[in-house]
Design a protein around this nucleic acid. Structure first.
Lengths: 190, 190
DNA sequence: TACGTAATCTAGCGTCGCTAGTTTGTCAAC
DNA sequence: GTTGACAAACTAGCGACGCTAGATTACGTA
């Protein structure tokens, strides 16, 4: 009988609609506007139905963030062109990272600022969470013996640049120069 | 007549008590526990009194954050020892910055994560907000022609390290190695 | 057709930020 | 000393939040 399969499928589709609604509202009106009541209205079910899909609001943010990590990883990988030099690759990945952060501020917030219940560096950590790191590690590898530490530092530098610029605390006009300095850290020379 | 002076003074003291209470509660129970109701109870006045001192909750967070910027600046300046080499100074300031972030997570959150209504890079920007940057610029200056950009990048790297480690996304055990890499960025050689 | 379970809903609890409207306190003029 | 005006502080409550207990409806199975 395909009945229970249909139910499972419909349930999955409804969950998707919740996540899509959360993301859409967040990107248009900010995360403060993503309320359980509003999501329930959006999917045309009552509020408790939301809680049959997610334990709490944070987990909904987490579901959106997980999508974001997948998309960030894809963007970083896409930025790596085979024809580039090793240095250009690092530069391109850095630029792609910041582009992502500024083009999708709500998504970036879900991924790095808001509580999400996501667990990093564990055995059950989803692939999306590892993949972005992997993309960065790929371009960092040629420059470092301790790739993990170098990648962590590279990532941190990019994250800091994204956050401080997003909050208006460093000058947007000098973004390229700052990336150049990051390059210097990675490559060990200018 | 000293009556109005007394009133002004008492009003100022009450405002201090609000800020101190907010900070104390935040450091003990997190910012979510800092509610207007709780602050009112703490200072033994009704809730509207809080709003005669601050426009809204964000401004209270901002007042605490402002204190934090002053204290961070002081800690960074204290980390600069006259006997150190230029490189050691950068290293000491970096370590002091991260120490601050990890020792006072609630304060760091108020300063860099939460909405505060504070305005940076403006004519009316308070001295505290500029001073931490100044301390970093002091130790960066010997290594760079464009001190502002280099300091921004240094600051961003430290902020990123603090945030990613605070959220458990990079390995605490490798903090020193990451600082070494930041040094490399600053000094242009290992 | 009757039943038991699963799915969904209504209604509401406790809490939040914030504020309208009222009461209380204080000081100056008569 | 009484009265009136203004400032200070209070009570009470609005609308919204996350979340949930308990009632109701829909539906596959016997």
């Amino acid at each position: 009988m395909g009945i229970s399969e249909r139910k499972t499928r419909e349930r999955g589709e409804r969950e998707r609609r919740i996540v899509v609604a959360a993301r859409t509202i967040a990107e248009r009106d900010g995360w403060a506007s993503v309320t359980i009541r509003r999501l329930a209205e959006e999917i045309e079910y009552s509020q408790p139905v939301i809680y049959s899909h997610f334990e709490n609001r944070d987990q909904i943010v987490g579901a959106v963030a997980l999508e974001g990590f997948g998309e960030l990883a894809a963007m970083l990988r896409a930025a790596i062109r085979p024809s580039s030099t090793s240095k250009e690759r690092v530069e391109d990945v850095a630029a792609a990272y910041l582009d992502f952060a500024f083009a999708r501020p709500a998504m970036y917030e879900a991924m790095f600022i808001l509580p999400t219940g996501l667990r990093f560096a564990r055995s059950d950590t989803p692939a999306q969470l590892r993949d972005g790191f992997g993309a960065m590690a790929t371009v960092i590898a040629p420059f470092s013996k301790d790739v993990d530490t170098a990648t962590e530092t590279f990532w941190a530098a990019l994250h800091g640049l994204a956050e401080l610029e997003r909050h208006g605390r460093i000058r947007p006009a000098f973004r390229a120069q700052r990336i150049t300095l990051i390059m210097q850290m990675v490559s060990g020379q200018l």
